[in-house]
């Protein structure tokens, strides 16, 4: 796919840490509205790829474009987030000494400057949106609770809620099902599918059952570059993928 009509466009991206190549000529394209699952063994470069897209790590070489025109390698985390890329971390990261509601309020799409927030008064529309999100992530009764007191799964959901509150064009979701029960995992998959209706989503996940339940195109990363791409059935039939996952 050409750069111009892509949402996210990575071409020949390489990153190395003290000689270790975390990403090696990685190329990947996400279309607007697409949902993509990314799998790969440990050390395949999944998290580093997220770091590159969100501006945490600068690539040594290669191009990263958002919306076909915006060069992400020149932007920092804050402006990339403002451009409309939201990220959920592998380890659920919420603001533990804030309440659930405050966590969502902080994430809510609004001007991000210090003076804007200093004089910010919460509007009726914002209240409605917060209520909607609280319902969606099923934390309505816990809105006044400190985030620190939530269970692991609830924190994952709160973080997804925060991601939605940002209203990003593209969501990067790192292992959303980690540490969840089977039922929670299934619910999370449903939630993500809902979200994918009006957002582009990139999901990194280990759990094959979860990936299968998403039913989307899968990209397999290995040693910092793309090994295979296609439906889950297609890639699981690929000999190299089997070899990478099972060892030779």
């Amino acid at each position: 796919m050409a750069r111009s009509n892509s949402l996210l466009y990575l071409d020949g991206v390489s990153v190395s840490f003290d000689g270790f190549k975390a990403l090696n000529e990685l190329s990947l394209t996400i279309a607007p509205g697409e949902m993509r699952a990314i799998i790969g063994p440990n050390g395949a470069g999944k998290t580093t790829m997220m770091d590159v897209i969100t501006g945490k790590t600068r690539p040594d070489s290669g191009e990263v474009y958002f919306n076909g025109t915006v060069d992400l390698t020149g932007e920092d985390e804050a402006s990339i987030a403002e451009l409309g890329i939201g990220r959920k971390f592998q380890k659920p990261t919420v603001f533990e000494s804030h309440t659930v509601l405050d966590n969502l309020e902080l994430a809510l799409k609004a001007p991000r400057g210090p003076f804007a927030t200093l004089f910010h008064v919460i509007a009726q529309s914002e209240k409605k949106r917060l209520d909607y999100l609280l319902d969606l992530i099923r934390l309505g009764p816990k809105r006044g609770e400190l985030a620190a007191n939530l269970s692991h799964g609830q924190k994952q959901w709160l973080e997804i809620g925060m991601l939605l509150a940002q209203d990003p064009k593209l969501l990067l979701v790192d292992e959303p099902a980690a540490g969840m029960t089977d039922a929670e995992t299934a619910e999370t998959a449903e939630l993500l599918k809902d979200i994918a209706n009006d957002h582009s989503v990139v999901v990194v996940e280990h759990d094959m059952v979860f990936v299968r339940s998403l039913g989307v195109k899968v990209t397999v990363l290995h040693e910092g570059s793309v090994l295979a791409e296609g439906s889950l059935d297609h890639v699981s039939a690929d000999e190299r993928v089997v070899e990478v996952y099972l060892g030779r």
Partner: peptide, 8 residues
Amino acid sequence: ALKGRAVE
């Protein structure tokens, strides 16, 4: 400095 993901 040590570099890499672990540092952060």
